[in-house]
Simulated scan of single mutants.
Amino acid sequence: MTNSIKYPIRINRYLLLRNICSRREADRLITQGKVSINGSVAQLGQQVAEGDVVDVADSAKNREYRYFLFNKPRGIVSHNPQRDEQSVEDVSGLGNSVSPVGRLDKDSHGLMLLTDDGRIVHAILSPEHGHEREYEVHTDKYIKESDLKKLGRGVDIEGYITKPATTERIDDTVFSITLTEGKKHQIRRMCAALGYQVTDLKRVRMMHLPLDVADGKNRMLTKDEKTALLTKAGIKA
């Protein structure tokens, strides 16, 4: 990610692209006086020029981040809950100490990654990195083999052609699809474009991380899972 830095650049984005912390965390560290540019305490919104020396206090760089797998139940909102809606933070058992990486529709369920490490979000979600997310899809009628192939090749959803995906039949009305991108309601829109209605949608895998916890439950990543995650995100473990 460091190769993508174009100067001048805001200090919080610079720290994000250097895999030091998220932009929100950067703003917090800057406010606390823990970031300097050329020996002077950095200010919120300050620009970093090529050749500037940026330093972050060791206590901030050595922070221990947490990573959890969570099986989101159907009906729970992953972001921006409205009145009378329950959010992931409400039901995960982890509160707001960690946040979801990416979204999962209210009517969908399954695997979410929760963390307080904002450094990994862009690296995991950006289509340019090609990280896989696998889903189990139930439709309202028998899905034709030819349509499974169309879903794999790419479907026109309102003028956008989806990227190639991997599909596999599970049953007459059930199939799996593995995406490397995440447009809003993408799978539902892809199926609708071919005349199918999705009756159930479950995420069963994110990259190397499987859905292996019960509905509404969470677990912490193992040491090996965490190391692999950070490696895939381009961050030194």
Rank of each mutant, 00 (worst) to 15 (best):
M1T: 09
T2P: 00
S4V: 07
Y14P: 08
L15N: 06
L16H: 09
L16I: 06
A26R: 07
L29I: 06
V35C: 10
S36K: 15
N38Y: 08
S40M: 14
S40Q: 15
D55S: 13
D55T: 14
D58M: 00
K61Q: 11
K61E: 13
R63V: 09
E64Y: 09
E64W: 00
Y65R: 05
N71D: 00
N71E: 01
P73S: 11
V77K: 02
Q82V: 01
G93A: 10
G95P: 03
K106A: 06
H109W: 00
L114I: 06
T115N: 04
T115G: 02
D116H: 11
D117R: 11
R119V: 08
I120K: 10
H122Y: 14
A123T: 11
H131Y: 09
H131P: 10
Y135A: 01
E136L: 14
T139W: 01
I143E: 01
E145Q: 12
S146H: 07
L148M: 12
G152C: 11
R153Y: 10
G154E: 08
I157L: 10
I161R: 14
T162E: 04
A165E: 04
A165V: 10
T166L: 15
E168N: 09
R169T: 08
D171F: 00
T178H: 01
G182K: 04
K183V: 01
R188M: 01
R189I: 05
M190T: 04
C191H: 04
Q197M: 13
V198G: 03
D200H: 13
L201T: 10
D212K: 03
K217A: 03
N218I: 04
N218C: 08
T222A: 05
D224Y: 04
K226Y: 07
T231C: 00
T231P: 00
I235D: 03
I235S: 06
I235H: 02
A237T: 12
A237K: 08
